[in-house]
Amino acid sequence: MNLTTTAYGTWSGGRFMHYGETLSEERYIECIRLAYESGIRTFVTSDVYGNGKADELLGVALSGFDRESYCLVGMIGHDFYDGQREGNKGYPRFTNPALRGEADYANYLKMACEKSLARCKADRFDLVMLHNPDEIGYTSDAVWNGMKALKTAGLADRLGIAPGPANGFTLDLINCIEKYGEDIDWIMLILNPLEPWPTSLALPACEKYGVKVMTRVVDYGGVFHGDLKPGHSFKPGDHRAYRAQGWVEEGLEKAAKMLPLADKYNLTPLQFASVWNLSLPMVECVVPSFFEEGVEGSKSIDAQIKDFAALPDVKFTPEEIEMVRAIGDNTGCMALKGASKRYQKGERADEWPMREDLLEVAGRYELGTDW
């Protein structure tokens, strides 16, 4: 089964990624089941969320449904088996030289995939993605031979890559697609009407090589759920608190200029953001974050799920797409992750020096030299 247009991610609900109120295990499971019962048929999990606990709860939630009736997407790459968590940096990637050499990449990937599947109570992933790779993950033949071996072993039907945790990696992605595009079926990227940059820069390469795109954060941190108000106070530890000061106010101001287009098509704000994404080349799946803000009058997570599940099958015109992009233009709003001229050496798993081959990629795609 291939991915469906709408998808549900196990980062929702506040248990494993800190957004809004934290759901109890029982409530967390109920929300996954509600998503299925509302018509959502693609479910995305990562083995590192809760060190396997998100996989387990997803397996419990979906255990009563026919396995052939939904698409299961897994992500592997953070080594919480042998690695030690480094505070906000999280767990090291499995490609960290302190953990293993390239001769052991395939064995790790197979082990991680099998353990994740067991927790999900499944025998295969419809899609398994390399999660938040470091520079080695984008460039290593040994990594991608190990990924291909997962298909050969019957553990996955499709392969993909999920960059992160923050935005960026544009040149790294394009270069990876050019090297391993025959084996990459899907990419998961951050994209929404208020964050068209830099993801849009990679879409031409995805189209050229036939790589489909799943987009996350389509809700823009909750702005398109309609519950955030100017001056909103986030709980300590909420991931959205790390965004630049004033992002809620600026986002609401820009969204207000876009939403007359939603009225034209009779769309809710979340549906509007999803349709805009799906109107772009190669974007075939959207997966928002669902959470409860815990403030008076805010939507329940149930209402958010039902709103998204009712997404109509419409597309915006090229002129409408461009109008929204111009309003939401966020070019240069953040320091991007991945290869950059800012670094002389790589000191973090998501930051490394620029390479000449990537500047050559930028030249061919007319993406400039200011990286």
Rank of each mutant, 00 (worst) to 15 (best):
C31L: 15
M323R: 14
L358F: 10
L252G: 07
G64H: 07
E56G: 00
G221T: 04
D104R: 15
S279K: 05
G87L: 08
I305K: 03
V223S: 03
R158H: 13
A362Q: 07
D123W: 06
G332P: 08
F16T: 00
Y49M: 00
P193A: 11
L57I: 00
G50N: 00
D66C: 13
S200V: 11
V48A: 00
G164E: 04
K306M: 15
K110F: 03
Q245E: 13
A244I: 09
D263C: 07
F80I: 00
K115V: 01
H225D: 03
S24I: 00
E319D: 15
Y138W: 14
L130P: 01
L109H: 02
C113K: 02
G297N: 13
L155P: 05
L278R: 04
G52A: 02
V211I: 13
P236Q: 10
G168I: 06
A309I: 12
E296W: 12
A106W: 04
S340V: 10
N51Q: 11
N277Y: 04
R119T: 02
V223N: 02
I321C: 15
F234Y: 10
N51A: 04
Y36V: 11
M282W: 05
E86N: 08
K235M: 06
A205T: 07
S200C: 11
E284Q: 11
P260F: 07
E320P: 11
T4C: 12
G77I: 03
F94A: 06
G64R: 06
G210R: 08
L311K: 06
G20H: 02
L201S: 13
T6D: 06
R67I: 12
A202C: 11
L58D: 01
P318R: 09
D219G: 05
H131P: 05
L359E: 11
L252N: 07
P193L: 09
C113L: 08
A339Q: 04
A122D: 01
R67P: 15
W371H: 10
T139L: 11
I76T: 05
Y365P: 09
S140K: 09
P204N: 12
E296R: 13
P204C: 14
G338E: 04
N145M: 14
W197F: 14
P269A: 10
F80H: 01
V324A: 11
T42A: 05
P196A: 11
P204A: 14
N88R: 05
A262R: 03
E292M: 11
K341W: 07
I29S: 03
H18A: 02
E322A: 15
E284G: 15
C113D: 05
V295G: 05
V314W: 14
W197S: 10
A273P: 03
Q84H: 10
F290S: 02
Q271N: 08
L99R: 06
V248P: 01
G9K: 00
S274Q: 05
